[in-house]
Nucleic acid binder design. Structure first.
Lengths: 231, 231
DNA sequence: CGGTATATTGAGCAACCTCAATAAAGGTGG
DNA sequence: CCACCTTTATTGAGGTTGCTCAATATACCG
């Protein structure tokens, strides 16, 4: 887990601990931020998976991105009057809370951490950028591979991959909602991909047979991810 | 133009002016940041339209969002080693440059401006979020209306709308690239929308016949945009 | 042991795509 | 001022990806 993170001075850690007044546990399926919610707090993911989403009046839902340990959640929601998206827990998860009213103090007194907050925000942004490219321009098979490859790479950096196997808590419905596809077509495309032998998704686990092969297909393993700050 | 912006103290303005070492003019079609470019600077749009995009090896292109005066451009590119997207000018444009190496100083010495940078980054993020919802879950007609409505609303706040008419420098190719559609289908859908009488796009101008009607169609005019900081 | 969430498969349909040709508009050099 | 070239817009024809509807497994849960 360590190589992916920067280190911080003792003083910063102490101040951070003071700001993070709360730890919260949420269980799988729980809402963390509701769409349209006011005064949402800022969170840091300590463990577990969550996802950010938007929906239309008629129920169509688009998952914007998935959050893994170390990710920031709710930056926009904390900065604006109300949230323009929802956040739900995919698995049981632990979150650190940074109260929104203390955010300004953080900028005043801990510029380095403030910088890291911006950095993490930009990092999340670039994931959404990539998802928009995926949904806008890739076909169904490419979309699935791109998402799987992205999650695999991120999880690998967190030390969550062993022998090409990792936990994969998404249902096919989540995949469909993240990729702008219907559930049925997601299922059929997944079945077709299964025969390709690149990877398998079953029983909440993802098994990648040949990481380099997946990478070539999705042109996705190429760009390494930079070390990131912890907040 | 004023009501959309916060005001700043003289001291802050002075410091900002010092940081913005350069003004740059670019002409329509010029690249501001190339995909994969290293050491890109951070920019503030002073006048004109620009857009951020990503592309795949085979030439498929996805426009991520459009930048209007007051928007920040290149935050991720300035924060990371290299850029994961390109930026091009849609019209002639003027940009203020904030050199990337001075960004940290800004966080150290001007926490309020640092906060605003984060705010503007989050604002841009929420636009990309909305675009992802649009591309992932709306049909062709809805996509066009959603984008047009969004640009209309933003331009209106900047004072760029008079009697329901505004400059609209996008070609149909830009619309298609932003919406995840083919050029041909964009054209045909646009033609069908024309008969609906909600709005017209012609000669680089957008004319909205009935702003409230467009809003109802796209469920998009409802949420007002908050006042924003200037950087 | 029913009940709910998830996964799978078939059938038919339509939204959107690609290919291709033509019009219309603007810019440039002679 | 005209001929030419490039960019942008338009329209038709036909194909395919991905959608909806619907039925059936499969697994987990209390």
């Amino acid at each position: 887990m360590k190589p992916a993170f920067h280190s911080k001075s003792d003083k910063e850690v102490a101040l951070l601990e003071e700001l993070k007044s709360d730890h919260v546990r949420v269980s799988a399926g729980a809402d963390v931020i509701l769409p349209e919610q006011s005064n949402a707090e800022l969170y840091t993911v300590f463990s577990g998976w969550l996802f950010r989403y938007k929906e239309l009046n008629d129920g169509r839902r688009q998952i914007l991105n998935f959050a893994l340990p170390g990710d920031l959640i709710g930056l926009q929601a904390a900065l604006f009057e109300k949230s323009y998206y929802g956040v739900a827990a995919l698995t049981d998860a632990e979150l650190c809370v940074i109260p929104r009213r203390k955010l300004w103090r953080l900028y005043e007194r801990m510029p380095e951490v403030a910088y890291d907050v911006t950095w993490l925000g930009a990092q999340a942004q670039s994931i959404v950028d990539e998802n928009l490219l995926t949904v806008g321009r890739r076909n169904a098979a490419e979309r699935i591979v791109a998402l799987v490859a992205s999650l695999y790479k991120r999880m690998d950096l967190l030390g969550g991959v062993r022998d090409g196997v990792m936990d994969f808590p998404l249902t096919q419905q989540h995949l469909a909602d993240a990729l702008g596809l219907s559930l049925v077509h997601t299922n059929k495309t997944l079945a077709r991909l299964r025969t390709s032998g690149l990877f398998t998704v079953a029983d909440g686990r993802l098994t990648v047979a040949n990481p380099r092969g997946v990478g070539r297909f999705a042109r996705y393993f190429e760009a390494p991810i930079a070390p990131r700050p912890i907040v």
